[in-house]
């Protein structure tokens, strides 16, 4: 476990360093603290690249830890914010905020992430209750299909808003493309509190997640207050998903790939799985963002394209293995 943590932290630092140093202007390590030798590099690093890398890291770790928690809670390795339709719910919340030019004075710039979270939470409740209505045992297929149904429905809602929109079109489309570019420190500040609260909520339920792997009844017999814990985990996961989607748009598959890889390498114990997914989710999205902005320079690919390129094959692989092992 010491190895797991130290290697994950090392990978994260390497990713951060690559993220801030590679680009149209190469930046040496010393720029981090030295602002005299090369003032322009210093301002690129701290003004543009660092917030971008940190934002990518926060989004990646939020999606990854939320995915790990959802998978544990639903006992389903294919569950993640994207496949469950929760990301779409968050998008609808966020797009609606822009479309109706909603701004609640008390919340200020937190209005968008908050509505994103509300959207995420509502769509999660809807998907889960609908899936339970179809099949009490909430089989993997039922859950994924329900997620697909809700995703397409919510997708149409977004299309409808885009079709009807006038002056906010630019704002909506640029948000929808899914990117962490040109967002700067304000976005980092906007997402940070929600990430901290969401991560704490999930981390406090790490042992409960372990117990819930054996089914609700066994978990209750083990002394877990199943109902309360479920809602706490759902709330934490939705908060993280909503926050991530609000700042970066929908980025798929991070919540699927990272927990899966982590589980394969270091096991299912959520006491470690959550933290390790958090660390590695950050690294993965920082690297993906780096690739998306350097692969076809000078233009940029949406980051969701890169994650889908990695994620879809992994998704297929898990699905294949699951079906095969069940005969």
């Amino acid at each position: 476990m010491v190895f797991a943590y130290s290697s994950s932290i090392l990978i994260l630092f390497v990713s951060i360093w690559l993220g801030v140093s590679i680009g149209s202007a190469d930046i040496p390590l010393s720029t981090l603290w030295d602002n005299e030798t090369n003032p322009s590099a210093y301002s690129i690093l701290w003004g543009i690249r660092m917030p971008r890398v940190i934002l990518a890291g926060l989004v990646g770790s939020s999606l990854a830890i939320a995915g790990a928690a959802f998978q544990g809670l639903l006992k389903n390795p294919l569950a993640d914010p994207y496949t469950l339709g929760i990301s779409s719910g968050a998008s609808v919340g966020a797009v609606a905020t822009i479309f109706f030019s909603l701004s609640i004075p008390v919340l200020g710039s937190y209005t968008l992430p908050l509505f994103g979270m509300v959207g995420a939470f509502l769509s999660m409740i809807l998907v889960l209750s609908f899936a339970r209505l179809i099949d009490r045992s909430m089989k993997m297929e039922t859950l994924i299909l329900t997620g697909v149904i809700f995703s397409s429905f919510l997708g149409s809602c977004i299309s409808l808003m885009i079709a009807l929109t006038g002056q906010q079109l630019r704002e909506i489309t640029s948000w929808l493309l899914g990117s962490v570019s040109m967002r700067g420190w304000p976005y980092v500040q906007m997402i940070l509190p929600f990430v901290v609260i969401g991560v704490i909520l999930l981390w406090l339920n790490r042992r409960e997640l372990n117990a819930m792997m054996y089914g609700d009844e066994r978990a209750q017999a083990l002394g877990v207050n199943v109902k309360l814990r479920k809602y706490l985990i759902l709330a934490g996961g939705s908060m993280l998903t909503g926050a991530a989607v609000s700042v970066s748009g929908t980025i798929g598959f991070v919540g699927l790939v990272v927990p899966h890889m982590t589980r394969m390498l270091w096991g299912t114990d959520h006491r470690h799985l959550l933290t390790l997914s958090f660390l590695n989710g950050a690294s993965l999205l920082i690297i993906c963002d780096l690739v998306s902005r350097t692969i076809i320079t000078p233009s940029e690919l949406p980051i969701g394209v890169i994650t889908a390129f990695i994620g879809a094959p992994v998704f297929s692989y898990i699905f294949f293995k699951q079906r095969r092992s069940r005969g």
Partner: peptide, 27 residues
């Protein structure tokens, strides 16, 4: 009893416990 207190007094082992994820015996 609270759920946790009750779990110290009594426990139930239901019929099926297939899990989606692999854990070791010790875990």
């Amino acid at each position: 009893y609270s759920t946790r207190e009750l779990a110290k007094k009594m426990t139930i082992l239901p019929q099926l416990h297939a899990t989606a994820f692999s854990s070791t015996v010790r875990e």
